[in-house]
C-alpha cells in the first residue's frame, strides 16, 4: 500500500508541467484552490473538472496511475458524498428507503463537494508529482521572500526543509537497521495487541532520536566549517528560471477564472 501511495512523491519527467518554474506552479495551485470556490452550478463544476483533466493531460502523468495512487482519498470522498446525500435536505424528495431520505439538493451538494475535493487533490498531487522536493523548497523560499521584512526567517525555514528532505532516506535506513538489530535481540515488533505494539516502538525510537541528535551536531559542525553563517550575503547555486510558459500558465488560469465568474449563478 505504501508503495502505491503517491502523496509527496516526485515522478521525474519532461512534460510542460515538469518544466514549469516551481514558483509558477505553487502560485498556480494556490490560485486554483481559491477559484475552486467560485464554481457554484453544474456548468461551472463541469468546467472545473475539464480544466483539471487538461492539466493532468499536460503533466503527462497517466490518469490510471493518479487514480490508483489516490485510492485512500476516494474512501474519504465517498464518505463526504454519503454525508451530504443523507443529511442535506432541500428540493424534491428523490426516494426514501426506510428512515433514509434522499433529497435532490443533497445529491447535488454531494456531487459538487466531491468534484471540488477531487480537483483539489488532483491539482495538488500534480504539483508534488511533477516538482522535486528541493525545487518546491526553492520556490517557497523565493515566494516567501517579501516576508523577510517582517522578520520571518525565510532562508532558515527553507534550509530546514531541504535538510529534513535530504535526511529522510538516511533516517529510514537507520530505522531499518535498528529494527533488525532489535529483532535480532528477540524483540517482537508488529504483533500482539495494540498496546504492546506501541510499547515495542519505544526501543526503536530512542536509538533513532539519539543518533539523529548526533547527526545534527555533526552536520552543524560541518556546515560551520564550510562557512555557513546564515542567509546574509549568501548566493544561490540553484537558479529559478521564469519563462514565457510560466506567465502563460498563470494568464490561462486568470482567463479561466474569468470564464467561471461569467457562468456562475
Amino acid at each position: 500500500m505504501m508503495e502505491k501511495m503517491i502523496f509527496g512523491r516526485f515522478i521525474p519527467g519532461d512534460s510542460f508541467v515538469h518544466r514549469m518554474d516551481p514558483r509558477a506552479k505553487i502560485l498556480f495551485v494556490f490560485l486554483f484552490i481559491a477559484i475552486v470556490f467560485v464554481a457554484n452550478n453544474t456548468l461551472t463544476y463541469l468546467l472545473l473538472l475539464a480544466f483539471t483533466f487538461f492539466v493532468v493531460f499536460l503533466s503527462k502523468i497517466r490518469l490510471y496511475f493518479l487514480v490508483n495512487g489516490l485510492k485512500p482519498v476516494f474512501i474519504l470522498l465517498i464518505f463526504t458524498f454519503m454525508l451530504h446525500i443523507f443529511f442535506t435536505k432541500g428540493g424534491d424528495l428523490l426516494f426514501s428507503f426506510g428512515f433514509v431520505e434522499v433529497y435532490e439538493e443533497g445529491l447535488r451538494q454531494g456531487i459538487f463537494i466531491s468534484i471540488r475535493f477531487l480537483v483539489l487533490v488532483f491539482i495538488t498531487s500534480i504539483l508534488t508529482l511533477t516538482t522535486s522536493p528541493i525545487s518546491i523548497t526553492d520556490g517557497i523560499e523565493v515566494l516567501l521572500g517579501p516576508f523577510k521584512r517582517i522578520k520571518l526567517p525565510v532562508h532558515e525555514l527553507a534550509l530546514m526543509m531541504s535538510i529534513s528532505l535530504r535526511f529522510i532516506p538516511t533516517l529510514m535506513d537507520e530505522t531499518g537497521k535498528i529494527l533488525k538489530a532489535q529483532m535480532a535481540r528477540g524483540s517482537d515488533i508488529g504483533s500482539g495487541p495494540l498496546k504492546k505494539r506501541i510499547k515495542a516502538v519505544v526501543p526503536l525510537l530512542i536509538p533513532l532520536f539519539v543518533s539523529a541528535f548526533k547527526r545534527a551536531e555533526d552536520l552543524a559542525t560541518a556546515m560551520e566549517v564550510r562557512g555557513y553563517r546564515g542567509g546574509e550575503g549568501r548566493t544561490r547555486y540553484r537558479q529559478l528560471d521564469w519563462r514565457m510558459r510560466d506567465t502563460l500558465s498563470l494568464l490561462m488560469l486568470v482567463g479561466f477564472t474569468a470564464v467561471l465568474w461569467y457562468f456562475r449563478t
Binding site: S132, P133, I163, D218, A222, R226, G233, T235, Y237
Partner: peptide, 28 residues
Amino acid sequence: FQNPDNQFVGATVQDDVAFALENNGVPH
C-alpha cells in the same frame, strides 16, 4: 569529517559541492 552521511548538506551532489561557495557569496 569522519561520517560521510553527516556532512552531506545538499540534496544532490552538485548542491552539496556548491554549499561552501554559496556561503561565501560566490556568483552563480
